[in-house]
Write a protein that binds this DNA or RNA. Structure first.
Ligand SMILES: [Mn+2]
Ligand SMILES: [Mn+2]
Ligand SMILES: [Zn+2]
Ligand SMILES: [Zn+2]
Lengths: 137, 137
DNA sequence: TATCTAAAAGATAATCATTCCTATTTAAGA
DNA sequence: TCTTAAATAGGAATGATTATCTTTTAGATA
């Protein structure tokens, strides 16, 4: 589980520290694309002396090294994602909930569409859907 | 130009103030989905006494009343959009540039796709593409 | 047109997520 | 085990945003 992560750190020349492992596991376990604060709260249970600055620095460096991604939101609080595979997001219009949405057919349809239809003056690297709406219940 | 805006304010029961008009025009003219700071800088040219708090308050209330939209980003600085029609965004991976992308065929294709393919436990209200990549120079 | 008043703007302090700084600790290679 | 560059802890600083309080004003009314 954390083995993949340790290997990735080594690949990138980053030291394997308990803080980095804990922060990564927090993101994986918390689901719902947690904030730095969510991560700190979660980690403090088992790792009470972690420093806030460390959490922010680690999150930043993991994003930099492509072990995490940031999620685009309309808030000034950053949220993080441990799912690196190509997927989309469901944004709840009444809560802060953000869920993953995987859909291989959709990916293919969009990728086909942009194989023909080029956008002028723009080289596409990645396409994600932000699907806003309401969760049932 | 600003006539539409004045009418909309009245509809919503909001007073038509010079500050609101100036802020709205700033967003329209600046393009590139400006930040509050961009707006303040722009407005100060013709309206030197505007208060920072007013700008934030007005932006908030215009979003609330659906005269502006927020743009989703990975930064803790909010950006605003005066284009209300259904459109997508091109995000530059190396600069802060965000451009509008309108594509009626694309909208139709996606809308058709989700007419059949329902997402379980989720009622879709709006779908936008965030297209990341690079602008040609 | 002058008067009235709730809403809005201005000025400035407070908040709080994030960043910065630096002394101390530690992962990991020799 | 020793060494050292990298990382962490702890606390101060930053800066976008929000809150508070006073003054002004848009627009309704007489
Ligand atoms: Mn954001
Ligand atoms: Mn901030
Ligand atoms: Zn995700
Ligand atoms: Zn736009």
């Amino acid at each position: 589980m954390a083995h993949f992560f340790r290997e990735k750190l080594k690949e990138k020349g980053l030291k394997v520290t308990p803080q980095r492992v804990a922060i990564y596991e927090a993101i994986v376990n918390l689901k719902n694309h947690p904030t730095a604060e969510n991560v700190i709260e979660y980690i403090k249970l088992n790792h009470p002396n972690i420093s806030v600055g460390t959490v922010y620095k680690v999150l930043d460096s993991l994003v930099e090294n492509e072990l995490l991604k940031k999620v685009k939101t309309e808030k000034d609080i950053m949220r993080y994602d441990a799912v690196l595979s190509n997927h989309h997001h469901l944004y709840c219009i009444e809560t802060e909930r953000i869920e993953d949405y995987e859909d291989e057919n959709l990916n293919e349809m969009i990728s086909n569409y942009f194989k023909n239809k080029k956008i002028k003056n723009f080289k596409v690297q990645d396409i994600k859907l932000q699907i806003t709406g309401k969760f049932n219940k």
